[in-house]
């Protein structure tokens, strides 16, 4: 089986979010970069778990990004995966990124294509669904469990107000979330092996962006917490009723 795992580079969850150039660009100054947690903990580790069950499984990683994405993709290779592909381009528009990954996916004829449920920077949760539409494949979102048997995948996913199990024929695109796999950290052997694993750089294929970012804004800070005397909960109820008007 061949699996393609989509990897995105995102600022660390605790990174300070600020903008430069008249609030049009994310301020990368001092930012620690990580593998998008959903891509790493759930999508990539699930692929590794499948390879541990069936050693003939081949895992390819793909990222769309400039050369500064390479430490992230090496870290992903250190966790597992046989080979990585970096599409040498900026990644500012979901559709553009999905087109680039789709071109790689078409060439590799993968049975499973994994994404994380969303990236923690732009939170669009779009790539998996877009990929499925470009490739004309089924898409299962928010998966938290997956078993494969021959050509059939059994996936458990989150739905409105519960969970659902479904069966789908491969190939399929799946977005992964908590429950799919157990978080791991790379070991020394993995880190050493990653140095010599192939990391192919390809130039982007023809595609145009459908959106562009005009500016960023930081939400207006809360005016400060209003402290209420713990012995006077009537006061809190009054504030919630009359000032906040939420109850």
């Amino acid at each position: 089986m061949k699996i393609l795992v989509c990897i995105s580079k995102t600022p660390d969850t605790t990174a300070k979010i600020a903008f430069t150039e008249g609030n049009t660009k994310f301020d990368e100054n001092g930012v620690q970069w990580i593998i998008n947690p959903y891509d790493e903990w759930y999508a990539l580790v699930k692929a590794i778990e499948l390879k541990e069950k069936d050693a003939s499984t081949i895992i390819h990683l793909v990222t769309v990004g400039t050369a500064d994405a390479e430490p992230i993709i090496r870290k992903a290779l250190a966790l597992g995966g046989d080979e990585a592909i970096r599409v040498n381009s900026n990644s500012n528009d979901s559709f553009y990124v999905a087109k680039q990954i789709a071109a790689i996916a078409k060439e590799g004829s993968y049975e499973l294509i994994f994404t994380g449920k969303e990236t923690i920077d732009y939170n669009s949760a779009s790539i998996g669904s877009m990929l499925s539409a470009i490739l004309d494949l089924p898409f299962v979102s928010l998966a938290n469990q997956l078993d494969c048997n021959g050509n059939l995948a059994t996936v458990r996913r989150e739905i409105e107000g519960g969970e659902e199990t479904c069966e789908v024929n491969l190939p399929v695109v799946i977005s992964c979330q908590k429950g799919m796999a157990e978080q791991r950290i790379p070991n020394m052997r993995g880190i050493m092996a990653a140095r010599t694993k192939p990391l192919k750089v390809v130039e982007p294929s023809e595609a145009s962006a459908t959106t562009s970012i005009k500016k960023f804004d930081i939400p207006v800070a809360k005016s400060g917490v209003k402290l209420v005397d713990p012995a006077n909960m009537d006061e809190l109820v009054k504030l919630l009723k009359e000032e906040a008007k939420v109850i």
Partner: peptide
């Protein structure tokens, strides 16, 4: 849950730009 799964695929099929969220 449903909208965020479907909207991007619809955007591709309509060759439309998407703002999700």
């Amino acid at each position: 849950i449903n909208g965020r799964a479907i909207a991007p695929a619809v955007a591709v099929k309509l060759e439309a730009g998407l703002v999700s969220g």
